[in-house]
């Protein structure tokens, strides 16, 4: 990405939502920074973010890209399956018509 034409740097910050902090925490845990068996590497995180394609930068937020990449990696690693993920997502959605604290 270095050197490509781009606009003015907007010095924005935002207060991270709890779900975003949990995604960040999950990456810390899964990459073994806190001890424990590493389940994935930052390299896989990055690779799977790159795999989302350049449009993902515009259509997804930072932690949306992260959670997608981490989940994809867990599927690739065989820690979870696509079917398990699908059923869990349906289950949680049904739990409260999708209503949960984000």
């Amino acid at each position: 990405m270095g050197g490509l034409p781009a606009g003015r740097v907007e010095a924005t910050e935002h207060d991270y939502a709890e779900w975003e902090r949990r995604v960040d925490a999950l990456m810390v845990l899964l990459s073994g920074v806190k001890g424990g068996t590493p389940r994935m590497t930052v390299d896989e995180l990055r690779k799977n973010i790159e795999a989302l394609g350049p449009e993902a930068y515009d259509t997804m937020s930072y932690y949306e890209r992260w959670v997608t990449s981490i989940t994809q990696t867990m599927i690739q690693r065989g820690v979870i399956t696509t079917d398990e993920l699908g059923r869990k997502m349906e289950q949680i959605r049904a739990r409260g018509e999708g209503g949960c604290k984000p």
Partner: peptide
Amino acid sequence: FQLMEVSL
């Protein structure tokens, strides 16, 4: 994506 986070 929030649903994905909770599910994962």
